[in-house]
Design a protein around this nucleic acid. Structure first.
Lengths: 224, 224
DNA sequence: AACTATAGGTGTACGGTGTACACTTGTCAA
DNA sequence: TTGACAAGTGTACACCGTACACCTATAGTT
């Protein structure tokens, strides 16, 4: 009986723990993600996890690095702008799949996929002719935008045009009459019919930034 | 004796609870911020808080709205670019003071200061002649950048040029030899001597975005 | 084949969390 | 003086991460 169970049960491993942890966080959210819940998902007692993972912090480190590993590295075959564009879009998509990771991408002990990613991005910019200082600037704007957009996308759940309108409406109703906030009223009324789409919105801002960078690529100085 | 205590002790109020909560979160961090800790800070038993605040979630909502209330609204006396620039810088400064709020600005039940802020920003853009769609785009890029920059600033503690170098060094050493990541090596070596400064970095990207927006202000379409 | 070292899974327990619920106490109106 | 109501208290519960001692199944060596 116990023998059956053991024969049936796949053995644990840190890789499997990590995989299942990511899946669980994906569907339960970070708030509801606990060591006890993860153990249950794996058909095991909570303390069994600690034979494969030092503690929850280290587990989260590993989970974040899995997210990094899903992000496409900038391709050497493309011009820098296309390469950066692709990796930005790939990053947003990874963060959409794993929204629990959104605030944690740069805050945790970095793993190998993280380092590979950062090294490749910086390399792409330097090879494209950006000076060191300019490359730092370029990296900084892009990542700030990508992470910030992911954050907003998660927080203001504008999934479809409709829900965008509803969200704005609800927001205003919550606090009282929206008479006092005419521009929020405008958003609540016009956004639903505007065909708002997150992927399009993301690309719009991304292109604005990449265009700006292209203009300044060979300049050493600040934006005009 | 108990009488003395009571006579000495200022009475609680939701405003005072909120004020002290913000101060406590500022110095302890969000992780270490607990209802029990807050109660202790106020010289009161934990459950006393619940006479003035519904629960921790609502308390956090109120705390975030305090942060919003510290952000300068865009001034009507300035041109849109200057007004947006000031409020962006003011936002970053508020988030620097209250870094626990960084991931929560748009995720929580919005309070009055939040609504006033959003309404004013949208109003500034519309009055400056941005079409509705363009104003949405402009708002989206700016806020994504601001929040994303704050996030990075918090996570990669590049306070001074020195610490920036140290951080990069430490990061690489953690995972193993940094031989495999030449561009991270470059960052680790050059950044310390480059005079990196967060406020300057923030303004650089901000100006890049505002310049881009200015170019597109009257165009209805996507970045060129 | 017997023995033993080791890795992996278990059970219990501790100190932390948010907060429900019933209680006492302080303050002011009538 | 009384009685109502607001404010603060104490106890208790379910959850969390995880330290520690224990058992057990397997692998290697003799």
């Amino acid at each position: 009986m116990t023998k059956q169970k053991i024969a049936t049960r796949k053995p644990l491993s840190s890789a499997r723990v990590l995989r299942v942890a990511v899946a669980l966080a994906d569907e339960a959210g970070l708030e509801a993600f606990s060591m006890r819940g993860l153990a249950q998902q794996l058909g095991v007692v909570p303390m069994a996890l600690y034979k494969h993972v030092a503690n929850k912090e280290e587990l989260l480190d590993g989970m974040v690095d899995i997210v990094f590993s899903e992000i496409e590295l900038p391709s050497g075959d493309l011009d820098w702008r296309s390469a950066m564009r692709h990796r930005a879009i790939s990053t947003r998509e990874a963060l959409k799949r794993h929204s629990w990771a959104i605030g944690m991408m740069e805050s945790r002990h970095p793993g190998p996929a993280n380092l590979r990613n950062h090294n490749a991005v910086m390399g792409c910019l330097r090879k494209a002719g950006f000076s060191f200082k300019m490359a730092i600037h370029a990296y900084s704007v892009q990542d700030a935008y990508i992470y910030g957009f992911a954050l907003q996308e998660r927080d203001t759940g504008f999934e479809t045009p409709d829900s965008a309108g509803e969200a704005a409406q609800r927001r205003a109703e919550t606090i009282g009459a929206l008479e006092n906030y005419p521009y929020l009223v405008e958003i609540a009324t016009k956004l639903p019919e505007s065909g708002y789409d997150n992927a399009v919105e993301f690309a719009w801002g991304l292109d604005l930034i990449l265009d700006g960078l292209d203009r300044l690529r060979h300049a050493g100085a600040a934006p005009a």
